[in-house]
Design a protein around this nucleic acid. Structure first.
Lengths: 250, 250
DNA sequence: ACAGCGTTTTGATTTACATCAAGAAACCAT
DNA sequence: ATGGTTTCTTGATGTAAATCAAAACGCTGT
């Protein structure tokens, strides 16, 4: 890839200012009284250092989380140390719903960077569910979204070639950013190549080459972690497999 | 693969005699009165012809199903006709839980063979949930099992080479059969090579070669759809990635 | 500023897998 | 049974992606 020194490649801020748990979790359907109730139930905002874990597989679920800044990855590991990243959670995303069916987490969650999450303890959550029927529906929808995300990833890993996989990923990241009110054509990748390659089931070198190829094809421009989408249509076309609007996380 | 004409390769029966929905869904925790209630709620046993669909993506969920004989595959398809098989449901398995979060199915379900399912309508199911709190927990556990299955498949598709993928599949099928009281060393594959290859994210030819290779390595013996596991330990060793007891379906 | 270390990119080579093509076995209807 | 169709296996070849190796870049601390 051609390397143009880019001194002004400042990281755009990625903190999510309007992402209190209440807004994220229940965008509508609550009156102000209920909203206050929810706000008061949020225990605290927690700071997690880069590479620290938010939870481990088989941990008892004690809370659900909303990412406010930074990024979290969830992953599955084998006894012999191989891992498969299952998803990335960016500012505005909720996580912890993986544990809902058996009360223990099904995967590990690790911070990719210094990260801020606010947490709603399970006790409070259960209590809220009792008081606010909407809450239960919202929870189910979250679980459903996760299932669909994973199914899309299966399609990606099982059927696409590497270039298409990257195109799909970038396309849905752009979509997500748009929904969140960020730029859908220019953004920073919150994860290292290493992690993205793992997520997309390919070698780091291959991933790097695919970035370069998309750049050669004038579809994107890459400066390290900064991505500009030059031709959204051709990108979408490459990612033709996606059959449904992107859900929340990645 | 060497071909030894095998005239006695009769299909073992695959019907599941002890798989009434009540037993499957709620193995324990119900008194006889409640059990009767559940049995009475089961609408009917439905026969589905090979290649017919049990439900389509975005269909409104009207029931949950228990496979009594035959086999069902669930899959996701892209606009351009490519598909990714997400799971196989064999006698004794429950399906339909994919729709729980948004009341519409997230994938297609198609019979791989003439298939018998018994169905519990959603109306009855909801009613039962109201009367039997256990039911709700059971539902959540089913959803959780599906999520874990999908996560395991992600690990398989993302990290394993083709031989390992097949070994993993055979290993978990054996495990499943064992749990169901069938032989874990000799069984019929309920699906065509075509479908299995798609599920495992490889070409049919590659799958065939991997069957042959495992046979050359004296790990299994294959006669068309009939598989004998000769060396379960070496099979498990190849499928080293599996990190947790197999859940219900595949 | 610089040195030092981890990350990312690029190049050369190997390899696992897909594809193409053809034969063998299984399935099906008559 | 018989022929025809489909499914499965095998072989030959091509190619996408992994691996190996090294250089360029970016980040951190002094």
């Amino acid at each position: 890839m051609k390397t143009v020194p880019l001194h002004n490649a400042k990281k755009p801020a990625v903190a999510c200012n309007n992402c209190s748990l209440s807004e994220l979790c229940l965008p509508r359907g609550l009156n102000s009284e209920e909203l206050e109730l929810l706000e008061n139930s949020i225990n605290k905002t927690v700071k997690i250092k880069k590479k620290d874990y938010l939870f481990h597989r088989d941990d008892k679920q004690h809370a659900i989380f909303a990412v406010k800044a930074g990024a979290i990855k969830t992953s599955l590991s084998t006894p012999d140390g191989e891992e498969q990243i299952l998803g990335f959670y960016l500012p505005g995303d909720l996580l912890g719903f993986d544990a809902f069916s058996r009360d223990r987490h099904t995967c590990d969650a690790q911070a990719l960077d210094d990260t801020l999450v606010c947490e709603l303890s399970m006790d409070n959550f259960q209590e809220l569910c009792g008081m606010l029927p909407v809450m239960r529906g919202q929870m189910m929808r979250q679980i459903g979204a996760e299932i669909e995300r994973e199914q899309m990833l299966l399609l990606t890993l099982g059927q696409m070639r590497t270039e298409e996989r990257l195109a799909t990923f970038l396309s849905s990241l752009a979509e997500r950013n748009k929904e969140r009110g960020f730029s859908s054509t220019e953004f920073n990748l919150p994860m290292a190549r290493h992690d993205l390659a793992n997520y997309l089931g390919m070698a780091v070198e291959t991933l790097s080459r695919m970035f370069s190829r998309l750049q050669e094809e004038k579809i994107i421009a890459v400066q390290h972690r900064l991505v500009k989408i030059e031709d959204p249509n051709r990108l979408k076309q490459l990612a033709h497999h996606t059959c449904r609007p992107a859900s929340d996380a990645l």
